[in-house]
Lab assay of single mutants.
Amino acid sequence: ITGDVSAANKDAIRKQMDAAASKGDVETYRKLKAKLKGIR
């Protein structure tokens, strides 16, 4: 179950990262990237 949750989280975070990148929001992008590392 835990694996599914983190996989879903990663997917959601990647989508947020894409949105931040397209807006040029480097700050948010970095925060999300750090979150991704924390999940692993």
Rank of each mutant, 00 (worst) to 15 (best):
I1C: 13
I1Q: 10
T2W: 13
T2N: 10
T2H: 12
T2K: 11
T2E: 08
G3H: 09
G3A: 09
G3E: 09
G3I: 10
G3Q: 11
D4R: 10
D4Q: 12
D4F: 08
D4S: 11
D4T: 11
V5T: 10
V5I: 12
V5E: 08
S6P: 08
S6H: 10
S6E: 12
S6F: 09
S6T: 11
A7S: 11
A7Y: 11
A7I: 10
A7Q: 10
A7R: 13
A7F: 12
A8L: 13
A8P: 09
A8E: 08
A8H: 12
A8F: 13
A8W: 09
A8D: 12
N9L: 15
N9A: 13
N9G: 08
K10V: 15
K10T: 13
K10I: 15
D11S: 12
D11H: 09
D11F: 03
D11K: 12
D11A: 13
D11V: 09
D11Q: 11
A12M: 12
A12S: 11
A12T: 11
A12W: 14
A12P: 03
I13K: 02
I13L: 08
I13D: 01
I13V: 04
R14D: 02
R14M: 09
R14W: 06
R14F: 06
K15Q: 08
K15L: 08
K15W: 05
K15V: 07
Q16D: 03
Q16P: 02
Q16K: 06
Q16N: 03
Q16H: 04
Q16W: 08
M17F: 02
M17H: 01
M17E: 01
M17V: 02
D18R: 15
D18M: 15
D18H: 14
D18A: 15
D18L: 15
D18Q: 15
A19I: 14
A19G: 02
A19P: 02
A19M: 10
A20C: 02
A20I: 01
A20H: 01
A20V: 01
A20F: 02
A20N: 01
A21L: 15
A21E: 04
A21M: 15
A21F: 14
A21D: 02
A21N: 04
S22N: 07
S22A: 14
S22V: 09
S22W: 06
S22L: 14
S22E: 11
S22M: 13
S22D: 06
S22Q: 13
K23Y: 04
K23P: 01
K23M: 10
K23S: 08
K23F: 04
G24A: 03
G24L: 03
G24S: 03
G24E: 02
G24H: 03
G24V: 02
D25C: 11
D25T: 00
D25P: 00
D25F: 01
D25S: 00
V26F: 15
V26Q: 07
E27N: 05
E27S: 04
E27V: 06
E27L: 05
E27R: 07
T28M: 08
T28R: 07
T28Q: 08
T28E: 13
T28D: 02
T28N: 04
Y29Q: 01
Y29F: 05
Y29W: 07
Y29A: 02
Y29I: 03
Y29E: 00
Y29M: 05
R30G: 00
R30F: 07
R30E: 08
R30Q: 07
K31M: 07
K31W: 05
K31F: 05
L32V: 00
L32S: 00
L32Q: 00
L32P: 00
L32K: 00
L32R: 01
K33S: 05
K33G: 01
A34D: 04
A34M: 10
A34T: 04
A34P: 00
K35R: 08
K35F: 14
K35P: 00
K35Y: 13
L36A: 02
K37F: 05
K37S: 08
K37E: 14
K37I: 09
K37L: 13
K37N: 11
G38W: 13
I39V: 06
I39P: 05
I39S: 06
I39L: 14
I39E: 05
I39G: 06
R40G: 12
R40M: 14
R40Y: 12
